[in-house]
Design a protein around this nucleic acid. Structure first.
Lengths: 113, 113
DNA sequence: CAGAGACATCGACATCTGTCAATATTGATG
DNA sequence: CATCAATATTGACAGATGTCGATGTCTCTG
């Protein structure tokens, strides 16, 4: 089965033609994953971090939240395919999945590519 | 106070620099409004409808949902500023707010500020 | 092997969300 | 004014969501 991120690539922009019910049900989980202040910041922190990747140990201190909570949010982003995950030694590094954000941006606004 | 849609215009793209907590809290409600299959289809239907506007009477039959439920979803989209609302006689017409979607798309996906 | 540190999972809880049936409101029309 | 049709509001309810503390798992290092 396609991950949500792969599924988005199929759809033409929102304003171009009516989204089918199936397409909408594929896209919505991606937006749902992004639609939280903490997860938005996590995505932004990872995307703009040096080398495009960040360790949880880099991310956790930026929030006033418990470690399990951050872990939960990262899991949500990873499960829909917005973040890639790699374990190196004791640390886990996250990286924004290439094309994930731009595909979403195109679907919504059709200005990005 | 700015509507969420106005607030988005201020932010540079997600991947460009870390989103502040305040910015994230302004943007998240917009994405939350979009992050539902029914509302995604509503936006798409309105945006791609003739003359860029649609009456509820056009939208309701496209769904297998009760009239109050559609009314509720449209209200959510309107409150966050994604849809403009105009009453003409007995009917209510919705129209996608100009620049709303493109601003969101740029924030999420664009690499060009 | 024992301990420590990084991260994940679990269980619990309050809050939020999508949905409906019932009802209210509004505007046109007889 | 009485009625009908289009839309909104209310109240209720099941299910999802964000958060935490406690605990589990993995990996490096003595």
């Amino acid at each position: 089965m396609l991950s949500p991120v792969d599924a988005v690539a199929c759809c033409s922009p929102l304003a171009r033609e009516p989204l089918s019910q199936q397409a909408a049900e594929q896209v919505a989980p991606l937006l749902k994953a992004l639609a939280d202040p903490v997860r938005l910041r996590l995505m932004s922190l990872v995307a703009s971090h040096q080398d495009g990747e960040a360790c949880i140990c880099d991310l956790n201190p930026a929030f006033d939240l418990s470690q399990p909570t951050i872990s939960h949010h990262l899991k949500v982003l990873h499960e829909v395919g917005l973040l890639d995950r790699e374990k190196r030694g004791v640390w886990v590094y996250y990286r924004v999945r290439p094309d994930a954000l731009s595909a979403l941006g195109t679907l919504i606004g059709s200005t990005a590519g």
